[in-house]
Design a binder for these strands. Sequence first.
DNA 1: AGCATGTAGTAAAACGTTTTACTATAATAG
DNA 2: CTATTATAGTAAAACGTTTTACTACATGCT
Lengths: 335, 335
Amino acid sequence: MSITIKDIAKIANVSITTVSLILNNKCHNIGEETIKRVRSIIEEHNYRPNALARGLITSKTRTIGLLVPNITNQFFAEITKGVEDGLSEHGYNVFLCNSYNDIDKEKQYIRVLKEQRVEGVILSSTNTVTQDYYSYLKEQGVAFVLLDRHASEPLNNGIIVDDRKGGFLAAQHLLELGHRKIGCLVESTGLCNIDERLHGYKDALAQYGVPYEEKFVVSGELTIEGGCQAAIKLIEEQIVTAIFATNDLMAIGVYEAAIQLGKRIPEDISVVGFDDISFAHYLTPKLTTVRQPIYEIGRRAAANLIYILQNKLYMPSTEVLDVELIIRNSTSSPR
Amino acid sequence: MSITIKDIAKIANVSITTVSLILNNKCHNIGEETIKRVRSIIEEHNYRPNALARGLITSKTRTIGLLVPNITNQFFAEITKGVEDGLSEHGYNVFLCNSYNDIDKEKQYIRVLKEQRVEGVILSSTNTVTQDYYSYLKEQGVAFVLLDRHASEPLNNGIIVDDRKGGFLAAQHLLELGHRKIGCLVESTGLCNIDERLHGYKDALAQYGVPYEEKFVVSGELTIEGGCQAAIKLIEEQIVTAIFATNDLMAIGVYEAAIQLGKRIPEDISVVGFDDISFAHYLTPKLTTVRQPIYEIGRRAAANLIYILQNKLYMPSTEVLDVELIIRNSTSSPR
DNA sequence: AGCATGTAGTAAAACGTTTTACTATAATAG
DNA sequence: CTATTATAGTAAAACGTTTTACTACATGCT
């Protein structure tokens, strides 16, 4: 089909080896003349080496897999951008895979990515990565970096944020404003980071001497719809003056619930989110939330993976990035 | 490194050919016994064929490239999901590439994708695809499907929507409400679809006997920031009672501008967007907009490409999907 | 017996590269 | 004048598959 190194060699009247050496800039002992000639022929015929053949022999495919739950979640779109930027600078291409929070689909994708001989995988797993699953990944023999979701073990190599601090900051802010009945919207399939955010919320309550009440914690999916349903349940059953949603999509769901129930934000209910996706700024009222450096997480993950690939060793530790409370207009003192 | 077909053959005490035939279900004349034995050995050793070697020989890599301007734009995230869903069903993997509206980056990516021997490319080009660029793509010898952005020529094979009708519906809605001074926010780098939307807007004005005024059309980037700046310019310089933003991000920018200028939506200014990205529903007031079947566009593009690959011929024509006006709360009669 | 047909399998070429170990010639040194 | 070194290049193996054309044997038919 397309032109090969053989063709180039024939046209230039040199051996395949010579062309290959020039292609890879290993032409210490090839004459200047020849180099120029071959280069111009390559240029002229718009020849590009076949990455498959190259990968087959070098096992450097210059590809990696990125596995996220759902690309339409702004959070993951932003991460994806960070990953792609970080990798493309190093000449890597990324296979995008949506797991839709389906662990089987996730494993299936890992198999396929292995088959494609990706050099590594960056993944935001559907599950908290347990010892078992971690072993499974290791066993697959593919370098990988974990994103966003913690592993339950310290052997994790990944990029996360200080979720507990984030939860603390969110609750502290509400407590400082005078709230004492603070709801919390979580997801209950055992995602460590959500647990940590809840943990931070409890820390803050304890520090302010407010008893923790289980009935104020309602779980749902980490989506707008899930947040809306959970918020309706919470508001109808309990008297809360504020809600901490453990991600921004759920917070948007709270806005929806407020509309449906005729409550005003922040007059009737204060809302704090988590993530600071870009739309948080364009809600009305603008959402007070805990900011994660989302794009940066993606870039770090990329950098981390590149490091692993280049040095053929795993980083010893997990990187924990800082979070920051962004106060906007969805929070005020209770009436 | 990992286990190969040779290893399996050795363990099973058969030839490589036999294993290969079993792997590809071409084992008409291989004994049942042998098949079972080999299958179980494959299973046991968790053997997966090397896609590079396979691709090298069959030129079927089961990969395609998806080239979008920016994955963090909700519109493209949704399209991407459609594409990935449509392709993964057929066992294809997708390389995601962000062009950031940089034509050089776009061409660079196409080179790299070719190098990776993708079977096809789905792209939402930065430019309107001119005859020249179209020829360039064809010349590259890669199957491709165009998305969202029209080609200027009828030789285009791609998926688009009825942009002109969309522009018409948006303007018609405002005209029916009684507006006569209607601004329009566009992008001026010559994207055919934006031109078409503007065209539809003019059609509607003409039909309602309202003279078209160039000063009401302001251009900016197709982003929130771009929409905000353009809207500020428009509102400060002209007396308009309504604005048609040619995409939803720009419409969100109008909301921002309204806040900054102390205008209320829809009381002071009605706003209509285009796209119906999911956040349109969560703005306050909820955005009236022209809905495109975004996810469907992605899926169709995928289906289209699969068709081309399987039949080794280009579809003769462009698919034009329908649009629909979604009336929400950002529009009302002028005071 | 001789021949066709079916069954179960294999050897080897091919895909397009990289890489290792080699050759041939010229220039330089001792 | 030989030995060494530098320069400019090449042949061939290897990567892990698929695929084509072949072999060897048994069975059935005339």
